[in-house]
Each structure stands twice: as C-alpha cells, then as structure tokens.
C-alpha cells in the first residue's frame, strides 16, 4: 500500500517538475490568453449600447437575462472553469500511445495507465494554477466592476468549488474515453475535433447557453441532456447566481453521475481494448 502510494507520488513529482521548467513563458502565455476577453468586452459593450438605447424593445438592457456586466463576468468566469475542464492533448496523447505501441509498458508494469495519466494531469493543473494565479488575480482585480452581484452566497461558493473539481474529472474521463476509441479505430483525430467543436458550442464556452435558440431545434433544452454544459456553463452560472439553490444541487448531482458514468465507461473500454490490442511497433 505504502509502496503504491510512493509510486504515485513519484509520478506526481516528475510531472510537477516537468512543468515548472517553462514558468516564465507560462505566465506571459496566461496573460495573453485574456486578450480575446478584452475584445469581447468591447464587442459586448457596443452591442449592449444599442440594446439599452432602445427601451421599446422590452429588453431592459438585458440579453437572455444577462446585463452587460453579467455578460463580461460570464466570459471571465468561463476562463476559470475552462482552466479546470480543458485537457489539451489528452485524447491525441492516449491515441498516440496506443497506435505506437507505447502502452505496452503499462501492460507489463503493475501501474495503471489511466491512473498514471490522471496523476500527471493533476500535477500539470496544479502547476498551472500556481503560476497562473498571479495573472488571473490581476485581470479579475481590474475587472471587478463587472461582477454586479459581488461574491456569491456561501452555499453557491461551495457548489462552485465542488463543480470545478468534478468538471476536471469529467473533462479528463471524457477525453480518456475518446482516446481509448483508438483501440478500435486507428484514427481518432477527427473524433477529437468533433468533440472540440461541440464542446466549444454547447458547453457554454462560446456564449451563455441561455442564448441558444429554441427553434427550429430546441438546442436550449437539448444541452440539459448532455454532459458538455458541466465543462463550462454550470460552474459559471452557479458563481453568477443564475441558479436557484435547488437547481444548483441537482446540477451538481447530475454532474457527479456523469463523472461516474465516464469513469465506468473508461474502465470498460480499457478492459475490452487491451483484449484486442495487438501491440504494434517497438
């Protein structure tokens, strides 16, 4: 048991140090990542300007319940939730390991591949938060005026943090499952691309999901049945006080259920996959 914990700890440390090498580049990169948000602020400013100048339209200067400040705050908060749920390179990494035969090392060593990848991801994310904390704090301090409601209530704050942790697990296991598809198909890049596209559109990354049209297809209702909205929209909406306490906790439960579903699916795919795996390459 102790030996096992030690193994995982070593994996964790290696991944941690790997990431700390590029910290300067990283911090700059994080600040750059807010440039699109800057243009978004100006875009929405111009749009809300038009809406508030026309009281006859019965919108009260709101779009789907979002005031201008809410909208900007939404985009800012999404950068945080995305920092938890996005897993760059995970699907393609798993697919590459399977295709190149690299996963053989997990078949002969008493180390679980999914667990190993999870520990590495946790380490990478922790380093990221450590280094990105400063630029994030700076940007959020400068933009504090956009958060019209101030800090959320304690229970919303709790749900927010829990949902962030779950969204990390959800993002991780969805991408693992996509990567494991390459046991059956050689090429999963296009699958990963479709996922990325749907994710962008239906997770709330691109805009608040309330903006989705309900005709001709009722997309707004459809996203409630998908796990994608827990990757960006849900945590953000909780933080901005968009959901009632009841909706909040129910959402959290559904999110947890999705996480369990994808953990089980990944396990099942792994056990089926290695049975038909034929270990190409050296």
């Amino acid at each position: 048991m102790l030996a096992k914990a030690l193994t995982w700890w070593t994996f964790f440390q290696i991944a941690l140090n790997e990431r700390l090498v590029y910290r300067g580049d990283f911090m700059l990169g994080t600040l750059m990542r807010f440039l699109p948000t800057l243009t978004q602020i100006f875009l929405w400013w111009a749009i809300y300007d038009v809406i508030s100048s026309r009281p006859d339209q019965n919108l009260d200067g709101e779009i789907a319940g979002y005031r201008y400040g809410d909208m900007v705050a939404y985009y800012l908060m999404v950068t945080i939730t995305r920092a938890f749920s996005s897993m760059p390179g995970l699907t393609s990494g798993v697919a590459k390991q399977i295709r190149s035969g690299e996963i053989k090392k997990f078949l002969i060593q008493p180390v679980d591949m999914i667990g190993c990848l999870l520990v590495q991801r946790v380490a990478h994310k922790l380093v990221y938060y450590l280094i990105a904390a400063l630029p994030f704090a700076l940007v959020f301090f400068l933009c504090r005026g956009f958060f019209l409601n101030g800090w959320p209530a304690p229970d919303a704050m709790l749900v927010f943090f829990l949902s962030l942790l779950l969204s990390f697990l959800l993002g991780f296991f969805i991408e693992i499952c996509l990567g494991l598809v390459s046991f059956w198909f050689l090429e999963v890049a296009s699958l990963g691309f479709i996922y990325m596209l749907l994710n962008f559109l239906l997770s709330g990354h691109m805009f608040p999901l309330e903006l989705l049209p309900d005709s001709p297809i009722n997309l707004r209702a459809a996203v409630d049945w998908l796990p994608l909205k827990y990757l960006a929209y849900f945590s953000t909406a909780v933080f901005l006080g968009k959901l009632s306490p009841e909706e909040m906790w129910r959402g959290l439960a559904i999110e947890a259920a999705w996480v369990v579903f994808f953990i089980v699916l990944a396990r099942w795919m792994w056990s089926r996959g290695i049975r038909r795996y034929s270990a190409f390459g050296g």
Binding site: V50, L59, L211
Partner: peptide, 8 residues
C-alpha cells in the same frame, strides 16, 4: 437576434 447593429 437580440440587436440590430453592433455599436450605436
């Protein structure tokens, strides 16, 4: 769907 122009 919400606005008829970008910027007044």
């Amino acid at each position: 769907r919400f606005t008829d122009s970008i910027g007044r």
